[in-house]
Amino acid sequence: EEKRQVKQVAKEKLLEQSPNSKVQVRRVQKQGNTIRVELELRTNGKKENYTVEVERQGNTWTVKRITRT
């Protein structure tokens, strides 16, 4: 359940930055209360990979860091 929520948060964050792209989740890793989500962003056939680190704060998820990989 929490992985599902985190995927959603990570996707939304990337789509905010580039709204007309397609996002696909590649991998989800958990480390303590930080969850790392690896995503693939496609814009006009151009692929970019991103890693989004999401942290739990109380009962909400906040995006800590977005890295292009």
Rank of each mutant, 00 (worst) to 15 (best):
E1G: 07
E1F: 04
E2V: 10
E2C: 09
E2Y: 06
E2R: 03
K3Q: 14
K3T: 15
K3C: 15
R4G: 06
R4P: 02
R4D: 12
R4F: 07
R4Y: 10
Q5S: 09
Q5V: 09
V6L: 06
V6D: 01
V6Q: 03
V6F: 05
V6K: 01
K7H: 06
K7G: 15
K7P: 03
Q8N: 07
Q8F: 06
Q8C: 04
Q8K: 14
Q8G: 04
V9K: 03
V9W: 04
V9R: 02
V9L: 15
V9C: 04
A10G: 03
A10S: 02
A10H: 00
K11G: 03
K11R: 07
E12A: 09
E12M: 07
E12I: 06
K13N: 03
K13D: 01
K13P: 02
K13W: 06
K13Q: 03
L14H: 00
L14E: 01
L15R: 05
L15I: 03
E16P: 01
E16Q: 09
E16D: 03
Q17C: 09
Q17H: 09
Q17F: 13
Q17A: 07
Q17P: 01
Q17E: 04
S18N: 15
S18M: 14
S18I: 10
S18L: 05
S18F: 15
P19T: 02
P19Q: 02
P19A: 04
P19V: 02
P19D: 01
N20R: 04
N20T: 07
N20G: 15
S21V: 04
S21H: 03
S21R: 01
S21Q: 02
K22W: 08
K22D: 13
K22T: 14
K22C: 05
K22P: 02
K22G: 05
V23E: 00
V23Y: 01
Q24S: 14
Q24W: 14
Q24N: 10
V25A: 04
V25M: 04
V25W: 03
R26D: 03
R26S: 11
R26Y: 08
R26P: 01
R26T: 11
R26Q: 11
R27Y: 10
R27T: 08
R27M: 07
R27K: 08
R27I: 06
V28C: 08
V28F: 09
V28M: 14
V28Y: 14
V28T: 08
Q29E: 12
Q29T: 14
Q29A: 12
Q29P: 00
Q29M: 14
K30I: 14
K30C: 08
K30D: 14
K30S: 15
K30Q: 15
K30A: 15
Q31K: 09
Q31P: 01
G32L: 05
N33Q: 11
N33E: 12
N33A: 11
T34S: 09
T34Y: 12
T34I: 12
I35G: 04
I35H: 15
I35S: 10
I35P: 00
I35F: 15
R36H: 14
R36I: 14
V37T: 00
V37N: 00
V37S: 00
V37L: 05
E38P: 00
E38M: 15
E38S: 13
E38T: 13
L39A: 12
E40P: 00
E40G: 04
E40I: 12
E40S: 08
E40F: 09
L41M: 09
L41V: 11
L41R: 03
R42I: 14
R42F: 15
R42E: 14
R42D: 14
R42Y: 13
T43M: 06
T43A: 11
T43K: 08
T43C: 04
N44A: 13
N44L: 11
N44Y: 09
N44M: 07
G45C: 06
G45V: 05
G45H: 09
K46D: 09
K46M: 11
K46V: 10
K46C: 06
K46P: 04
K47A: 07
E48A: 06
E48G: 03
E48K: 05
N49F: 14
N49A: 08
N49S: 09
N49H: 11
Y50G: 00
Y50P: 00
T51I: 14
T51M: 11
T51D: 07
T51C: 07
T51A: 11
T51Q: 10
V52W: 00
V52S: 01
V52F: 02
V52Y: 01
V52Q: 00
V52I: 05
E53M: 09
E53G: 02
E53F: 09
E53D: 12
E53C: 05
V54P: 00
V54I: 08
V54A: 03
V54G: 01
E55D: 11
R56T: 04
R56S: 07
R56W: 12
R56K: 14
R56G: 06
Q57M: 11
Q57D: 13
Q57R: 07
Q57N: 10
Q57G: 05
Q57P: 03
Q57E: 14
G58Q: 11
G58F: 11
G58D: 12
G58H: 11
G58R: 06
G58L: 09
G58C: 05
G58Y: 06
N59A: 10
N59R: 05
N59T: 10
N59D: 13
T60S: 13
T60M: 12
W61K: 00
W61D: 00
W61F: 14
T62M: 12
T62E: 13
V63F: 03
V63W: 01
K64W: 05
K64T: 15
K64V: 15
K64C: 11
K64D: 03
R65L: 11
R65A: 15
R65F: 03
I66Q: 02
I66M: 08
I66W: 03
T67Y: 15
T67S: 11
T67C: 07
T67A: 10
T67V: 11
T67E: 10
T67F: 11
T67K: 07
R68N: 15
R68Q: 13
R68F: 10
R68W: 05
T69P: 06
T69C: 06
